[in-house]
Amino acid sequence: MIAYILRRALYALPILLGVNVITFVLFFMVNTPDDMARMNLGVKHVTQEAIDKWKAERGYDKPLLYNAARQGARKLTDTIFFDKSVGMFAFDFGRADDGRDIAREIRHRMGPSLAIALPVFAVGLAVNITFALVMVFFRASYLDFVGVVLCVAMMSISGLFYIIAGQYLVSKLWHLVPISGFADGLDAFKFLVLPVAIGVVSGIGAGARWYRTLFLEEMSRDYVRTARAKGLSEAAVLFRHVLQNALIPILTGAVVVIPLLFMGSLITESFFGIPGLGSYTIDAINAQDFAVVRAMVFLGSFLYIVGLVLTDISYTLVDPRIRLE
């Protein structure tokens, strides 16, 4: 098990390196730092001094990959690529355009992000599984049909609509909760109810339908026939046999996103004014703050890989057939 995790960690390194190269190419090779400076400072009327100053502030005033002016190994290390990459692996993301330390900002903003993403994830999973079970229990009946139609309709609605309609009805018309904002501690509850509810509702269509398919697939297996031949009731067949088998792909499939919950949700956070990582990212994109975007890309990949490892581990916990080697 330890050896397995170690191997996965080693395997993660080249992937993170790859991510780093991709972002580097995107951010420094597609456009030169000079272009970015000009873009950032306003395209017209920019002096070369202003550009140089902008670059120096951000440490972009070195060669990209190879510094001919240096000696020995410094030819490779005193470059933008080396500077910007090594920091990443140590989770030192440098400073944003507003001068704040990005790593610190990330630490502060993870909490609010998680406060929304985690309940959406957990409640959503429970709700979707429940709906799917109900549909499967009454399969091939009117109820099942209506459920499926409803799911298809719900998954055809834009996520933005759920948010806008929810904010309009619940906050603006009925004045039940504040339209947006965030507070620390227990006060956060009233700010979180609506985004969480909207997050759950907007996921039902696709989620419940997908789980229903999984359950139905499991229902057609031979062991279900064996269970019926034993004289078990439909409920026992469904809840004891089918559920247990179908939950394995459902749970392990869900595990991979758990670490990514830290990243928050771009849209929800920005609509509801929640100071999490999602809104941080969106602000950075709108302000064209490349350092922040790069940091978020790296963080996202890192969390994804953590998720992959967790998935494998969770398999061994819920599926007796799998032992990690």
């Binding site: 064996t226 031949a229 004289g231 078990l232």
Partner: peptide, 23 residues
Amino acid sequence: RDVRGRRIAMIFQEPQSSLNPVM
């Protein structure tokens, strides 16, 4: 259901798939 398993039991061709894999 009281007949199945009690009065009449059945075994199938594929023992591999006829048993619940996670029980």
